[in-house]
Design a protein around this nucleic acid. Structure first.
Length: 287
DNA sequence: CCGTTAACCTGAGAGC
DNA sequence: TGCTCTCAGGTTAACG
C-alpha cells in the first residue's frame, strides 16, 4: 500500500488516538509476515505506554515511554484499523479492496488498549514489524537507508554524491531505498513526469539543473500528496477509514492512453516496463 | 562492490 | 459461471 505520504497520514491519524495510551495485551495470530515476528514480542509490548509516533520514509515508528520502539512497515497491502469498544462505536472500515467488512482472515496482529483495539491487517503479508530495545539499535537499523526527499539535507550535493559512478537509470535510483528513501512506484512516476526526465535516463547523464528539478519536484509531489491525504488506489485509507484523494491528481500513474496534461503537448501517456515494474510517461515531455 | 532477477503472498479483473 | 492468466503502493537474497 503505502509510500511516504500514506505512512505520514497513518502517523497523523494514529497520533490523535494513541498518545499516552497503554497496551494491555497483544495477540499475534500469524507471525509469518515478510519476516517472522520476533519470539516473545507480545511480552515486551504488554503494559507499555506510547509516548509518540514518528515516521521515517515508509516506516512507522512507535516510541514507548520506556525508550523502546516498534517499527511497522506496511509492505504492499498492510493497514492499521482502529476499533472502538463502545456500543455505537464507529467501525473504522479500513477495508481491503472496497469490501465493507473487515477481512478478518488477514488480521494478523491485535493490540488491545483500554477503550479500543488496533489491528494490523495484511493480505499479502509483505509488511513486517520489528521491535528495538534501545535507540542505538533503531539508528543502526536505519543507517543504511538513504535520506527521504523531505529531509532538509536532501539537496544537490547529497543526490550527486549518491549517484556518483552509478550506471542505473533514474527510476531505479528512486526505488532504491538505500539511496533515496520513501518513494515507491507511484511517486517515482509522478516526480519524473513533473521533472520532465525520462525514467530510463541513466543518472550519469543527468545535468545539475535536471537533478535540481528532480529534487524540487520530489519535495513538491510528496507534500501535495500529504496535503491531499495520500493516494487511495485500492485499499489505502487512514486510521479513521477516510480515503485520500491524491490519486485524482495523478498525471501519469495508471493513466495509460490519456492525453498528456502539459500545456500544448500532443503526447499520450505510455506504459513501459522498467525492471519489471510498470512505468508511465509522456515521451514528448520527458527527455 | 554493482546491477539484475526471482521470490515472497493473496486477490481482483480481464479474457476466454 | 468458472477457469486461467496477469498484475498490484515493496523488499531482499542470490547470482553473475
Amino acid at each position: 500500500m503505502p509510500e511516504l505520504p500514506e505512512v505520514e497520514i497513518i502517523k497523523q491519524s494514529l497520533q490523535k488516538s494513541v498518545i499516552n495510551k497503554k497496551i494491555n495485551k497483544v495477540l499475534i495470530k500469524n507471525r509469518n509476515l515478510r519476516f517472522r515476528i520476533q519470539r516473545g514480542l507480545e511480552k515486551e509490548l504488554n503494559n507499555n505506554k506510547i509516548n509518540h509516533i514518528s515516521r521515517k520514509s515508509k516506516y512507522l515508528i512507535i516510541h514507548f515511554k520506556n525508550k523502546r520502539f516498534l517499527v511497522i512497515h506496511f509492505g504492499m497491502t498492510g493497514t492499521l484499523h482502529l476499533i472502538k469498544k463502545k456500543k455505537n462505536y464507529q467501525n473504522t472500515n479500513l477495508s481491503f479492496y472496497h469490501s465493507t467488512n473487515l477481512p478478518k482472515k488477514h488480521n494478523h496482529i491485535v493490540f488491545f488498549f483500554d477503550n479500543f483495539k488496533l489491528i494490523y491487517n495484511d493480505p499479502r503479508r509483505f509488511g513486517f514489524i520489528k521491535f528495538f530495545f534501545n535507540k542505538n539499535e533503531l539508528l543502526r537499523y536505519f543507517a543504511n537507508k538513504g535520506l527521504e526527499p523531505l529531509d532538509s539535507s536532501f539537496n544537490l550535493e547529497y543526490v550527486k554524491k549518491k549517484i556518483l559512478n552509478r550506471k542505473k537509470n533514474i527510476k531505479n535510483i528512486f526505488l532504491d531505498q538505500s539511496l533515496i528513501s520513501g518513494i515507491g512506484n507511484i511517486y517515482a512516476n509522478e516526480i519524473l513526469y513533473y521533472s520532465k526526465i525520462n525514467p530510463n535516463k541513466k543518472v550519469n547523464k543527468l545535468k545539475d539543473d535536471e537533478i535540481k528539478k528532480i529534487i524540487k519536484f520530489s519535495k513538491y509531489v510528496l507534500k501535495q500528496a500529504i496535503y491531499k491525504g495520500g493516494s487511495s488506489i485500492k485499499d489505502f485509507k487512514n486510521i479513521k477509514g477516510n480515503s485520500g484523494s491524491y490519486q485524482k491528481e495523478f498525471r501519469v500513474y495508471d493513466r495509460e492512453g490519456e492525453s498528456c496534461s502539459t500545456k500544448n503537448c500532443i503526447g499520450t501517456i505510455k506504459k513501459i516496463l522498467i525492471s519489471n515494474r510498470s512505468t508511465f510517461l509522456c515521451k514528448y515531455c520527458q527527455k
